[in-house]
């Protein structure tokens, strides 16, 4: 109790304001301390992760970050690889487009699709029934020689395997279908070349005339060939890979 009293009395006396130069100095120092304290607490709260970290901690943080950036860089690389593969796939799409283009060409040749284009219409009037299967075949060959790309005879699309046969009695059998005169041929190709090819001396028109029939050629801006064939998949023949290209 004897020590208690002087300590409290001294505290009370110290809390009593009495201004002197050193008291002001002490106050100033305490002000600086308080300011620093608040600043540090604030800074610590604001960026506690880096500001308070020492060098080795920062090195550790940096290490972690660089590891992470390495991982991300690897990810970028793999994504770029994927992108390159996808771009190659775009070239694959080009191949598909090319294949489609060729398929449509082959479809025209195989007669599986209706076609349209410039060409001629050839009507063979045969009142005496003099026109034979071989004459029609010759006509078709002549037209093919002249660059005919698609031919329709009557209601039959002429393709590579088309055959002609004299029917018993009147008419001609084309690919199993019996046709009667007048025979009407729709041909797509260069109209001028086609009609010239038919008109050459000793050609189709002349032989038709000498046989007693008559061919009438009309050049047309647009010929529509609507007859189609079902695509027959070959039973024996198989395409070879390089042969496929060389023959093109």
């Amino acid at each position: 109790m004897s020590q208690n009293t002087p300590a409290r009395r001294r505290l009370r006396r110290a809390l009593r304001p009495h201004i002197s130069r050193t008291q002001l100095l002490v106050g100033l120092l305490c002000l600086v301390l308080g300011f620093g304290l608040a600043t540090q607490v604030h800074a610590n709260r604001e960026e506690s992760e880096f500001a308070a970290a020492r060098q080795d901690e920062l090195v550790g943080i940096l290490d972690t970050l660089s590891q992470r950036s390495d991982r991300l860089r690897a990810e970028i690389q793999s994504l770029e690889q994927t992108r390159a593969e996808l771009e190659q796939d775009t070239r694959g799409e080009a191949a598909v487009a090319e294949a489609r283009r060729r398929a449509s060409t082959y479809a025209v040749l195989a007669g599986t699709v209706p076609v349209t284009g410039p060409g001629i219409e050839l009507v063979v009037n045969d009142p005496g029934g003099k026109v034979t299967a071989s004459m029609l075949l010759d006509t078709l060959q002549e037209l093919r020689d002249a660059g005919a790309e698609a031919v329709q005879i009557g209601g039959v699309r002429a393709i590579a395997s088309t055959y002609f046969r004299d029917a018993s009695g009147r008419g001609i059998v084309v690919d199993g279908q019996r046709l009667f005169p007048p025979y009407r041929l729709l041909v797509i190709g260069d109209p001028h070349t086609l009609s010239t090819a038919l008109d050459i001396p000793g050609g189709i028109m002349e032989s038709l005339r000498s046989a007693g029939a008559e061919g009438v050629v009309t050049q047309r801006e647009e010929i529509r060939i609507t007859a189609v064939r079902a695509a027959a998949s070959p039973q024996y023949a198989r395409a070879t890979r390089d042969g496929d290209r060389k023959n093109n």
């Binding site: 106050g27 100033l28 305490c30 308080g34 300011f35």
Partner: peptide, 22 residues
């Protein structure tokens, strides 16, 4: 007394100004 006042003023200043530590 002045010391306590100085401390209080300092803390208040720090909280209000919120200066960046160089």
């Amino acid at each position: 007394m002045i010391a306590a006042i100085g401390l209080a003023i300092g803390v208040t200043l720090g909280l209000v100004l919120q200066p960046d530590v160089p």
